[in-house]
Design a protein around this nucleic acid. Structure first.
Length: 914
RNA sequence: GGGCAUGUAGCUCAGUUGGUUAGAGCACCGCCUUGAUAAGGCGGGGGUCACUGGUUCGAGUCCAGUCCUGCCCA
């Protein structure tokens, strides 16, 4: 015994199999397999059945493209909520979903091959959607997101589609759906409507002409005056119904004279005068009096159409600009988006006398032009204008003009029949319902309120193939048949066989199937995809046995105030006259570190931009690292992201992991039976850490309740680094390593360590889904941590006077450390244990009994030798300790050398090794 | 151009109803330790609180305006 040279073997150092190196990339997939094998998600659901429910309804991501960090942020946030609600005692099933229809997929498919039939387009589109569903599902699972991954909801499921149709039927039943012409981007080359994404901008030379419209009743002093418009599409003049002025712009009315002798009284925006004179040669005759007024002065007057027997209304709109033209804008509501909007606001017709080939119809009012292509009619129109004196200028104008991606022909705006939902009929109810919902952050309420307040009627038809068909029919005479009972029959058929049926069967089949005359034809339009996802409360919340409507929570990015939150609200008003959610959270977008939005075009081959797909990060750092990053950001604002920031998070992870490792290591010889309950005889530092743990639990509980994961992250980090690492673990090292294994204070500490480790681990489980489970396993548990509840703050862990005593101790500690540091920098000592410290405490305060308890003070300050005095102020001096060093515990103590059997040990260590 | 947000150390963020010298974590620098060791401890440097003006004894905090950035519109 006395021969034992190496006392190190008698020191009870931490021992654990829990590896310091996380190897998350290797370990996490194994844990995932285990979770899958034991059906963990289903276990959680059946174990929590009967508890109060918490339904977070998943907003379906578009099934196109990889999971990027923004998508990951969204899904992990949802998972943090679901996991924390589960651990807080709720039954919180999570049914993920995907938005499957829509242009981007169809466009991709159509681009890949020419001449596809609608059925082929739909088959390929479905395959494309399913491909990305699989890719995204794999990513979400890999990120540790729990949910019913084998039974997600898809907007292309027949059951889902029938829900959409029935909700549409309800809108029809309530008289909310109407038909009206509206201009769309039209390709006469491909004979189809196009979306903005299908348009390519190319250079085109167009005529740019100045045309006068004589005012029918000009303001006094401007007798015989004409408004002058500027247009690059003369062919739209037959559809002109109005002229728009800006109400705030200054306009000049005066006599203009041309070098060729022509003279006209014209009205031009003051700021455009110079440009107009230069372009047309008409010069304002300053000798004659001219009149100036605001655009609002002419609002409501009439102007004579230059070649048709009708007048155009003079209106005021705010979109009139003064960077081109004359400040007076030619309005053809059937041929432009702004024009259409202005037309709706001012009660104009939607005149669009152009057929699908781009040729004039009889409606154009010019018999000679009927059947003629609009672009080859420009010259003819200009001639007419010149002939009747309305043409004031004619130039060539080179500009970027939209062209069809497929036929390469220039696009025209052309009005076609569209279907709309009458928002006015449901607006008031929607606004009321907005105020029954909790919006987080609170400004979200104003955001969506403003959006709903001002939104125009909802155009719900699309001239597309990859979508849910708009279930209407037409009689042989072209009369529309839009009936709830027939829509119901379509929905019944779709529920069994899917919407492909609409495209596979012919008109006759459908006519018979829904009980209409044999010569009935079905419609060609599909529904706006926002209708699809906006019906999820009907198709998912109402249908799924574990879910219900309204959901407790929707959470998506801020753009969804205008998107899904709104479409869901509207469709829910249609379906049930109430909001589909009780509360709504929004999160920001992921941006790069300079605060710029990360655009998809910066990604991909040849670009220098950093990787933004989630797989890059979970394959390099691990899923828990992504999750920890999510928990660390302020998701209510834009979320800055870069790989460097990500590495910063991984530093935090390492700290957390190492702390767990040393805690686990200190439990290696734990007396399990004893550890189950905390002994009465806890030392000061044990009581203190339990009280800190109590506070931590209070804060974490509150933070999870308010979805403030960053708070959990911060509070846990500070607890780990300030309370545990630099104090509790450091201070208790001596007793843990060097006391006899069964010393009461060592055992007490061990019990506290278990309590701390388990509680902390549980609080972290929603965030570090993999690591917490791993730690839990190493704590000796056989069931997953995800089947546990949080361990709430224990009031028995609050002790009288302890917190203030430790506050004082820390003040003294700071003074001591500074003194020691000075000695260390002066190379007088190295380790703290080599110092003798004279501590002077102030006469007042510092009156807890511990301040007369030298052994405890020495332990707390981790010193070999401490001497106390009282004086005016807190101070400390340091000298080199002259005591011999105990070879085992490294403290310099006076009794080293007094023990015969172990001459190099102190008394405590001598006993411990005997 | 409009609406809604946002702006505090190199980075990510705290800063209660206005009140000492504006804090934390990470990063950085120096030292110690080598019994948490691809770890740990101690000490330190670093900020005109976006800008301008105002209210006040006193403003990161309240008010007005400007600018940056983001989302949604036009």
């Amino acid at each position: 015994m006395s021969e034992a040279k190496n006392y190190k073997d008698t020191v009870l150092l931490p021992k654990t199999d829990f590896p310091m190196k996380a190897d998350l990339v290797i370990r996490e997939p194994k844990r995932l397999e285990k979770w899958t094998a034991e059906n963990l998600y289903q276990q959680i659901q059946s174990q929590t059945k009967g508890k109060p429910t918490f339904i977070l309804h998943d907003g379906p991501p578009f099934a196109n493209g990889d999971v990027h960090m923004g998508t990951a942020l969204n899904k992990v946030l949802k998972d943090l909520i679901v996991k924390s609600k589960t651990m807080a005692g709720f039954h919180a099933p999570f049914v993920p979903g995907w938005d499957c229809h829509g242009l981007p997929i169809e466009f991709k498919v159509v681009k890949s091959a020419a001449g596809l039939t609608p059925v082929q387009i739909r088959t390929l589109s479905e395959a494309e959607a399913r491909k990305y569903i699989d890719i995204q599902r794999a990513s979400f699972k890999r990120l540790g997101v729990f949910g019913d991954w084998e039974n997600p909801y898809l907007t292309l499921d027949p059951a889902y589609e029938s829900g959409i149709l029935r909700t549409f039927g309800k809108a029809v039943e309530k008289g909310l759906v109407y038909r009206m012409k509206r201009p769309v981007l039209w390709s006469y080359g491909a004979q189809t409507a196009l979306a903005e994404a299908e348009v390519e901008y190319k250079e085109k030379t167009s005529p740019a002409i100045y045309v006068k419209f004589a005012l029918v009743s000009p303001p006094p002093g401007s007798e015989g005056a004409s408004l002058v418009i500027w247009t690059t599409t003369p062919w739209t003049l037959p559809a002109n119904l109005a002229i728009a002025l800006h109400p705030e712009f200054d306009y000049v009315s005066g006599k203009f004279t041309h070098a060729d002798g022509r003279s006209k009284t014209l009205v031009i925006a003051k700021s455009r005068l110079e440009a107009f004179q230069a372009a047309t040669g008409f010069i304002l005759d300053t000798a004659h009096p001219s009149d100036a007024f605001k655009g609002s002065a002419l609002n409501g007057s009439d102007a004579q159409h230059p070649f048709l027997p009708r007048t155009s209304k003079v209106i005021n709109t705010l979109f009139v600009t003064d960077d081109t033209g004359t400040g007076a804008v030619h309005i053809a509501p059937g041929h432009g988006a702004d024009d259409y909007q202005a037309g709706r606001e001012h009660g104009l017709d939607i005149l669009s006398p152009v057929d699908p080939d781009g040729k004039y119809t009889a409606e154009c009012g010019l018999p000679d032009f009927v059947g003629k292509h609009v672009f080859s009619s420009n010259e003819g129109i200009i001639e007419i204008l010149a002939t009747n004196g309305a043409l004031l200028g004619n130039e060539k104008y080179v500009h970027q003009y939209p062209h069809c991606w497929r036929s390469k022909t220039p696009i025209i705006f052309r009005a076609v029949e569209q279907f709309f939902i009458k928002i006015d009929a449901i607006r008031q109810k929607a606004l009321e319902q907005i105020d029954t919902v909790t919006w987080l952050p609170a400004w979200g309420r104003n955001r969506i309120y403003g959006t709903v307040e001002s939104r125009p009627d909802w155009c719900i038809s699309r001239q597309r193939t990859w979508g849910v068909p708009l279930p209407v029919f037409y009689t042989a005479e072209g009369e529309i048949i839009m009936r709830t009972d027939i829509i119901g029959k379509v929905a019944d058929l779709v529920e069994k066989q899917g919407t492909n049926l609409w495209f596979e069967k012919d008109d006759a089949w459908w006519a018979e199937a829904v009980g209409l005359p044999a010569d009935t034809k079905r419609g060609n339009d599909t529904l706006d995809v926002w209708i699809d996802s906006g019906c999820s409360h009907v198709s998912v919340l109402d249908q799924h046995p574990e879910l219900h409507c309204p959901a407790d929570l929707y959470i998506e990015a801020t753009d969804q105030h205008r998107g899904w939150f709104q479409s869901s609200l509207m469709m829910s008003i249609v379906a049930r006259n109430a909001a589909p959610y009780k509360s709504v959270i929004t999160h920001g977008f992921v941006v790069d570190t300079s605060g710029k939005k990360i655009s998809k075009s910066d990604q991909g081959a040849g670009k220098s931009a950093k990787p933004m797909t989630a797989d890059h990060y979970y394959n390099k750092y691990g899923g828990d690292m992504v999750r920890l990053w999510v928990s660390s950001v302020d998701y209510q604002n834009e979320v800055p992201f870069s790989e460097e920031l990500f590495q910063q998070t991984s530093e935090s992870y390492r700290r957390i992991r190492n702390t767990f490792r040393v805690l686990l290591g200190n439990l290696h010889d734990e007396n399990v039976g004893q550890a189950a309950r905390l002994p009465e005889s806890l030392t000061l530092i044990d009581r203190w850490i339990l009280e800190r743990l109590h506070n931590l639990s209070l804060e974490c509980e509150k933070a999870y309740e308010s979805y403030d994961f960053r708070k959990v992250f911060t509070v846990v980090n500070q607890f780990i680094s300030a309370d545990l690492s630099s104090l509790y673990i450091d201070i208790t090292k001596d007793r843990m390593y060097c006391d006899a294994a069964d010393s009461p204070r060592r055992r007490a500490t061990q019990s506290v360590i278990r309590e701390v480790t388990e509680t902390l681990c549980l609080w972290l489980a929603p965030i570090l889904a993999f690591t917490a489970d791993e730690v839990w396993e190493h704590l000796g548990h056989t069931k997953s941590i995800h089947l546990q509840g949080f361990r709430l703050a224990n009031p028995n862990h609050v002790f009288d006077g302890v917190a203030t005593a430790v506050e004082d101790l820390l003040k003294a500690r700071a003074v001591i450390q500074q003194a020691i540091e000075a000695a260390r920098q002066a190379k007088q000592i190295g380790s703290n244990l080599e110092a003798t410290v004279h501590l002077t405490l102030p006469n007042t305060g510092f009156d807890h009994p511990v301040f007369s308890d030298l052994p405890t003070l020495r332990e707390f300050f981790i010193l070999s030798d401490l001497h106390l005095t009282r004086a005016e102020t807190l101070a400390a001096t340091v000298e080199v300790c002259t005591n011999a060093k105990c070879e085992r515990c490294w403290r310099h103590l006076p009794d080293v050398g007094t023990h015969e059997a172990h001459p190099t040990l102190c008394g405590r260590c001598e006993e411990a090794v005997s």
